[in-house]
Design a binder for these strands. Sequence first.
RNA 1: GGACGAUUAGCUCAGUUGGUUAGAGCGCUACGUUGACAUCGUAGAGGUCGGCGGUUCGAAUCCGUCAUCGUCCA
Length: 877
Amino acid sequence: MPTKYDPKEAEAKWYPYWLEGKFFNAERNAEKTPFTIVIPPPNVTGNLHIGHALNNTLQDILIRSKRMQGYDALWLPGMDHAGIATQARVEGRLKEEGISRYDLGREKFVEKVWEWKDKYAEIIRRQWSKMGLSLDYSRERFTLDEGLSKAVREVFVRLYEKGLIYRGKYIINWDPETRTALSDIEVEYKELKGALYHLRYPLKDGTGYIEVATTRPETMLGDTAVAVHPKDERYQKLIGKTVVLPIIGREIPIVADDYVDREFGSGAVKITPAHDPNDFELGRRHNLEQILVMDEAGKMNENAGAYQGMDRFACRKQIVKDLQDQGVCFKIEEHIHQVGHSERSGAVVEPYLSTQWFVKMGPLAEEAINKQKSEERVAFVPDRFEKIYLHWIENIRDWCISRQLWWGHRIPAWYCGSCGEMTVSREDITTCPHCDSTELKQDNDVLDTWFSSALWPFSTLGWPEETEDMKHFYPTDVLVTGYDIIFFWVARMIFTGLEFTGENPFKNVLITGLVRDAEGRKMSKSLGNGVDPMEVIDQYGADAMRFMLATGNTPGNDQRFRWERVESARNFANKIWNASRFALMNLEGFTAADIDLSGNLGTTDKWILTRLNETIADVTRLLDQFEFGEAGRSLNNFIWDDLCDWYIEMAKPHLYGENAEAKKTTQSVLCHVLDQTLRLLHPYMPFITEEIWQHLPQSGASITVAPWPIVDETHHYPESVKQMGLLMEVIRSVRNIRAEMNVPLSKKVELMIKPTNEEAYSLLSQGEEYIERFCNPQKLEISLSLGVPDKVVSAVVTGAEIYLPLAGLIDIDKEIARLEKDAEHLKNEVERVNKKLVNQGFVAKAPAHVVEEERAKGKDYQEKLEKIQVRIQELKN
RNA sequence: GGACGAUUAGCUCAGUUGGUUAGAGCGCUACGUUGACAUCGUAGAGGUCGGCGGUUCGAAUCCGUCAUCGUCCA
């Protein structure tokens, strides 16, 4: 084995091996408890980003650990057709060739998108494999594939038949850039500095004018009323009168409506029912005409008179100028307001009157709310996200699901050119069921991408068929996703899941934060600060990236991407590699059958086995609680500190020594501990653990299916932890003295240790060989009755006093100063503890064991302090 | 305007039901190539846990309030 771990080699070797062995394929075994995760399907628009890497790593850790724990683990992969995003990308590509989608026509264009999809699906699969994800590719799905399309149709038709899907003419959010309707949540509101334009509309009777204010003056071309508050005294006598709309000359009424805010502006508002949601509602109450003044591209239409053909913003400029010239616009104020932008294209969203399809949310939301308030709620992790979800679903509005795109699930509604009836159908139809005419035309629109994503946890398992997979693996166990799509996706999966399967689609939702750049900025294409996970893997290996992401922080919080942290993780991998290399070099000829822990275990053996037990318990518990960071740190500490820094060093004398029995015991312990540790680490670092494990004396096919370690009660020795503690403390003190007194390890010195009692004496005597090895003394004396020389450097630990006679080598004043510093520190501790103990409240109210611990601490500090003070006195004499 | 989150060592972050001498990695300082590893080892410096007030025998941890930054919702 080389001295450095080569990630590329291991990664290239093991992923194909895993696939060939079908280790990732779920069994659908009735004997086993299923554990299911469906991957949040990435968009087929392009490459995976570092956020996917985080999200997928966490899922892989979960699924790998559950698989090893004996569950029938299914991690189902798939991709999303991502309507607007994908269509926009393909259109962009065509544009480079000077072609628009209209040049190609719908059919040809969709063919092009499928080509794109095939290409990127392949890229994404390759990226998944690079990351080492244990996905069951035999069950991979795509939101537009046949089965899922069938599920989409089924859901659409059922909701339609139930009256929960309807078609109608309403104000929706229109994106003039991509020329499609958007749902409410696809609109991002940004605070912008705009203007409030004050206009005077003249009364028809010539008795004056009424003042209105607007932020979108171009919409005045579509005004069909002016509204005032019915109780507004200023306007009482104007209600019912008629004004003449400037420029257009249309006569429009002044109406009274409670909706009007008397405080805002002049208290009178212009009403444009076709371009504003509130005006739309008001217009319906007052039977006002709805006049659209723009087309789908955001250009002024034939109703805009002279402005026809102008872009909406150009028109705004021009119309303001014209209104000013006419004296209609008499004041322009700076005005900061929230302006909706398309989440996809960034274009300013236009409230627009349009015929669209909607999901009626009331009944669906109610069911979801009730469920969430019952025992059968979805567990959000961290739980604060539950509130965010509930608040949203409790205030939800109907969902606009039709999109004026070509890429997506086409709406299964047909219009008859003969009788004019509309038919919604599961199957494509060619004749009208109402009049038998064949003049049928399918609705041009497609469904919101999230409509199909909402069905993902069950449509991927074969629903609406009653498949075996559905019966066995549904509902799923955990959904891992970012907080940015709780509304878009999580909420919608929950209410569709409840409606169509009667259950929550998942038991837990693990919410992750965003991976930001090193400065804490959101990664974005425009900033160019994104980190490509493939580059990270290329430089440091997949395991390092995974470990870094998984231990980066706590669930739900954002984390910053820092290369130094990837480097640390890479170093950790290398540490494991070298520890294993050491072990393997000393396990020559040793087989799995040779492992024997029944022999005469030493304190260090007992200690490392006990620490292993603790680590197994911690990691298992923490993973169940989704505490990936803590579990990873626990493993890091165990491997680096306990295993490498102490156990391996202490194993050396046995491995190199003549005692065959001791050697075999040490080999057994080392081999066992390493094997168990690799298994615990495997979910985080699949490649390196497999690579090493395959070198280890063991008989399994792959660590991916090796049983998860369990706490071994027969090898649990809590007293060994205390015993090792003393040994470690003695060794550390000697090192500390050597460092502080500038006595390098190469310099042999005499070392005298005076244990405080028989027990400590026995322990330290047993550990003599280790003290020799770690402290490199010329002569070591451990005795309860030591004749301490005058010129000596010393230290006091709990259980022993340590002396290094360094006559002539040291500066007495320096040693006194060093001891006084220790004494000072101990004095503070003694004082702190005493203060607690004299406090009657503490002694009376604190739990007995806490008081007892505090007393013991106080006694220990006091004893150490006294001993140090004695040493100081002796040096001063 | 409402809700939530963050504020802990120079930097990035842990700290899970209130009781640890407040931790890690990186960085820094000083030593060190002893037969796994310099992608390393040993030792060390560095924090009044954002401010104020409260609850409690005891607060980084619970409550209130303020400040700064950030996110979501309206």
